[in-house]
Every structure is written in C-alpha cells, then in structure tokens.
C-alpha cells in the first residue's frame, strides 16, 4: 500500500489489543493491493504470527469465559468438586501414612509378666534380655507405673480407686534390632519370649500396623479408581460445555472455513477454552482443598496433642499442587479435544 493511503490510519489507530503485537518484524511489502499477486509470507514471519495468534486466541477465549462469569463459575465449580474428592482422599492417605511412618519397622514386643514376678526379678530379666544381640532396646513398666499411666490417659482414675489391688501386670517392652526385624525373626523371638517362665503373654505390636498398611494400600487404589471415574466426569463436563460453545459460534466457524481456515485454526479457540476451564477448575479445587485443610488443621493438632504427638496435618506440597493444576488443565484440554474434532467436521459450509 502506498504511504498516502496510510495517512491518518497509522499504528496509533489500531484497535487496542493489537498494540502489543506491533513489534512483529514483518517486512512491509510494497506490493499494491492492485498488484493482485499472491503474497508469500516468510517462514519467520509466519512463525511469529503463529505465536502471536496463539497468544491472541488464548486471551480471547479467556475473555469470552470471563464475559459470562456465572456460567463459567458453574462449570468451573463442577470440575473443582470432581477434583477435590480424589485430591482430598489423597491428602488424607498421605497423612495416615505420615502418622504410621514413625511406627513402621519399629515392631515392638510387649512381654506381659506373671503377677508372681517381682520388680527386682523383672529388672533382672530386662538386663538379660538387653544383653541379647538381637534386641535393641528394653523398657520395664512396673505394675504401679502402668497403673499411673492408665489413670492419666484413660480418665478412669476414679474407677481404679475403687479397686483393692492393681489389676495390671508388669510389662517388658522390647524392640528388636533393625536386622532382626523381619517377620520370621520376630516370630522366632516371639516364640522364645513366650517360652520364658516369667512370661504370661507376649504380644506383637505389629499386626495392627500391617493391617493399617494394607488398608491404606486398598484406600489408595480406591482413590485412584475414584479419581479415574471423576476424571472421566470432568472430560464429559468440559466436552459438553465446549460442544455448546461450538454450537453458539457456528456462523463464525462457517465463515472461517469459507475463507480458508484450517481445522487447526478453527479448533484452537475451543482447545484453549477447555484448557482454561480445566485450569480454573484445578485452581478452585486447590483452593477448596487448602481451605478445608486449614479449617481442619487446628482440631487435628489438638487431637494429636491429646496423643502426646506433635503431628500436624500435611497439606498439598508444591509439587502436588503443580501436578494437580497441570492434570486439571490437561483434562480440560483433553475433554475439548475429544469433542472438537467431531463437532467441527459436522460444520461445513453448504
């Protein structure tokens, strides 16, 4: 175009959102419109323009969503709720595991002594056992200490006062050394201790831990299954929303296809839309989860305090949060991808 035609219509008159892209170093072509020659765009220009087009489309789909805040919020909320459930379970399981971590491998054997065994005999036995190579630590809890502890912890002190004698036996608490902690070795130790004349009953404090671990394993799998189902739900929600959006922009799609828009070009805004929905859903889910955890953390700390534990609730770490957002955005994108191809093929200019 000639300079004279450009007069008064320079860059300053460009629509506002284009100003950001003015740095595009496209070499001005001197060809006249009247030249009627097809213009070949250079590859670097095309790449530049492709990228700026992506930026523009991403921004435009975002603006479209924000233009209808209520509808967008509804869809986002549905996605968020679908994501909060498995994410919440995941965090819960992490916490259960963190709690049981301190106990893991630390199998303890409680040797309940016969009532006939005196404190001195018990101490002697403790010394003997402590000398064994397969035992790492020993502790003797005398009947009176046990009673004191029970009184303190159970809150049944008044009931205990009614009793004539102490109903609790003395206990030797043993932990095996690390190399002797395998189930078979502990089993062997258990049998040996059971054979001691002073021992009334030997209890292995590990079974419940194993059970707990199995239960957490099962819960983990259930969480995964639930997550998979809800992910499918998210795909459907996003897919359906995108389908409606495509229907709403049917005219535009027809015109774009008529003037030579490729399928990729037509698809792009809807893919971005899916991406945004997913990302917003993920962020909202994260927010819901974080606030729930915050809300729970006080009471959990108090509960842990009652168990003399300094445990505090684990939240979502940085990595987990990033994974959550990325998978949410990915799900949105995938949901859009699943619908867009089929829907757009059906819209052809006739």
């Amino acid at each position: 175009m000639s300079k004279s035609k450009q007069k008064g219509s320079g860059a300053s008159k460009l629509p506002k959102r284009r100003l950001g892209q003015l740095q595009t170093p496209a070499k001005p072509s001197r060809r006249e419109l009247s030249g009627a020659k097809t213009h070949r765009t250079r590859f670097s220009d095309q790449w530049q323009s492709y990228r700026s087009h992506h930026r523009q489309v991403a921004g435009e789909s975002l603006r479209r969503l924000l233009k209808r805040p209520l509808a967008t919020l509804m869809t986002t909320l549905v996605i968020a709720i679908a994501m909060v459930l498995p994410a919440g379970l995941y965090v819960g399981l992490n916490n259960v595991e963190a709690v049981s971590q301190g106990w893991d491998g630390a199998a303890r054997l409680s040797v309940f002594l016969k009532f006939s065994v005196s404190d001195q005999d018990a101490q002697k036995l403790r010394q003997q056992l402590a000398d064994r190579k397969d035992i790492a630590s020993t502790e003797y809890i005398s009947p009176s200490e046990a009673l004191e502890e029970f009184r303190r912890r159970s809150g049944f002190g008044d009931v205990l006062d009614q009793l004539d004698s102490n109903p609790l036996p003395g206990v030797l608490v043993l932990s095996p050394t690390a190399d002797n902690s395998s189930p078979e070795k502990i089993e062997a130790l258990h049998d040996q201790l059971n054979a001691l004349p002073q021992a009334d009953l030997v209890k292995l404090d590990m079974e419940w831990l194993q059970r707990l671990n199995r239960i957490t394993d099962i819960s983990r799998r259930l969480t995964l299954a639930l997550a998979a189902m809800l992910a499918a739900g998210v795909l459907l929600i996003v897919g359906n929303t995108i389908k409606l959006a495509i229907e709403n922009r049917r005219d535009e799609i027809l015109v774009v296809k008529l003037v030579g828009g490729t399928n990729a070009f037509v698809r792009r805004p809807f893919l971005y839309m899916g991406f945004w929905y997913g990302l917003f859903g993920g962020l909202l889910a994260w927010l819901l989860l974080a606030s729930s955890l915050l809300w729970l953390s006080g009471p959990v700390k108090e509960l842990a305090g009652l168990y003399n534990s300094s445990f505090s609730l684990l939240g979502l770490g940085v990595l987990d949060s990033l994974i959550m957002w990325a998978s949410a955005a990915g799900l949105g994108l995938l949901g859009a991808l699943l619908v867009v191809g089929r829907e757009l093929r059906a819209i052809e200019p006739k």
């Binding site: 450009q6 072509s29 765009t41 828009g261």
Partner: peptide, 24 residues
C-alpha cells in the same frame, strides 16, 4: 482481517492490507 489472520500474516501486513482493501 479474518482471511489474513487465517493465512498467518504478520500484524503490520494485516493493518496495511486491511486498510488498503477498505480504502478500495
């Protein structure tokens, strides 16, 4: 501008060409 955006023209090109066409 739509056909030019679709064809991947640079931004400056689009501005000039659209105005040339509108002028015409």
């Amino acid at each position: 501008a739509l056909p030019l955006v679709i064809a991947g023209y640079g931004h400056r090109d689009i501005g000039r060409r659209v105005r040339a066409a509108l002028d015409k």
